[in-house]
Amino acid sequence: MSIEVLLIEDDRDLACTVIDYLELEGIQCDLATNGTAGYNIAIEGKHDVLVLDINMPGMDGFEVCRKLRRNGMSTPILMLTAMDTLDDKLKGFETGADDYLVKPFALKELAARLKALAGRKTNRARRLTVGNLVMDLDTRTVTREGCSISLSPTCWSLLETLMKNAPDVVEKSKLEQVIWQGDSPDSDALKVHLYRLRQKIDKPFSHPLIHTVSGYGVVIYGEGSERDQS
Score class of each variant (00 low, 15 high):
1 M>G: 14
1 M>L: 14
7 L>A: 14
7 L>I: 15
8 I>H: 03
11 D>W: 14
15 A>N: 09
18 V>F: 06
21 Y>L: 06
23 E>D: 10
24 L>W: 10
24 L>E: 12
27 I>S: 01
33 T>S: 15
33 T>I: 15
35 G>T: 08
36 T>M: 15
36 T>I: 13
38 G>S: 09
40 N>W: 09
41 I>V: 09
41 I>P: 12
43 I>C: 07
44 E>N: 10
46 K>M: 15
46 K>A: 15
48 D>S: 09
49 V>K: 07
49 V>S: 06
50 L>F: 11
51 V>A: 15
52 L>K: 03
54 I>K: 02
56 M>A: 08
59 M>I: 13
59 M>D: 06
60 D>A: 12
61 G>Q: 05
61 G>A: 09
62 F>L: 12
63 E>L: 11
67 K>E: 07
68 L>F: 03
71 N>S: 04
74 S>G: 10
76 P>E: 10
76 P>R: 10
81 T>Q: 03
82 A>Q: 07
82 A>W: 04
85 T>C: 06
86 L>P: 07
87 D>C: 06
88 D>L: 09
89 K>N: 05
90 L>R: 14
92 G>Y: 07
92 G>E: 04
93 F>V: 13
96 G>T: 07
96 G>D: 07
97 A>V: 15
97 A>G: 13
98 D>Q: 07
98 D>K: 05
99 D>R: 08
99 D>T: 06
101 L>I: 13
102 V>Y: 04
104 P>G: 08
104 P>M: 05
106 A>E: 15
106 A>C: 04
108 K>V: 14
108 K>M: 05
109 E>C: 11
109 E>N: 09
109 E>W: 09
109 E>I: 06
112 A>H: 13
113 R>T: 14
115 K>V: 13
117 L>A: 10
118 A>D: 08
121 K>I: 15
125 A>C: 08
126 R>W: 07
126 R>V: 15
128 L>W: 07
128 L>M: 04
132 N>M: 06
132 N>R: 09
134 V>A: 00
135 M>C: 05
136 D>T: 11
137 L>G: 04
138 D>A: 13
138 D>I: 12
138 D>N: 13
143 T>K: 10
145 E>G: 08
150 S>M: 04
155 C>K: 03
155 C>T: 05
158 L>D: 00
160 E>P: 02
161 T>G: 03
162 L>H: 00
165 N>R: 01
167 P>G: 02
167 P>S: 02
168 D>H: 01
172 K>V: 00
174 K>Q: 01
175 L>W: 00
179 I>C: 01
181 Q>A: 08
181 Q>G: 06
183 D>F: 09
183 D>R: 09
183 D>L: 08
183 D>Q: 14
187 S>H: 07
187 S>Y: 03
189 A>Y: 02
193 H>G: 00
193 H>N: 02
194 L>E: 02
199 Q>H: 02
204 P>A: 05
209 L>G: 00
211 H>I: 07
213 V>R: 04
215 G>F: 03
215 G>I: 02
215 G>N: 02
217 G>W: 01
217 G>R: 00
218 V>S: 00
226 E>V: 15
226 E>A: 04
227 R>L: 09
229 Q>R: 06
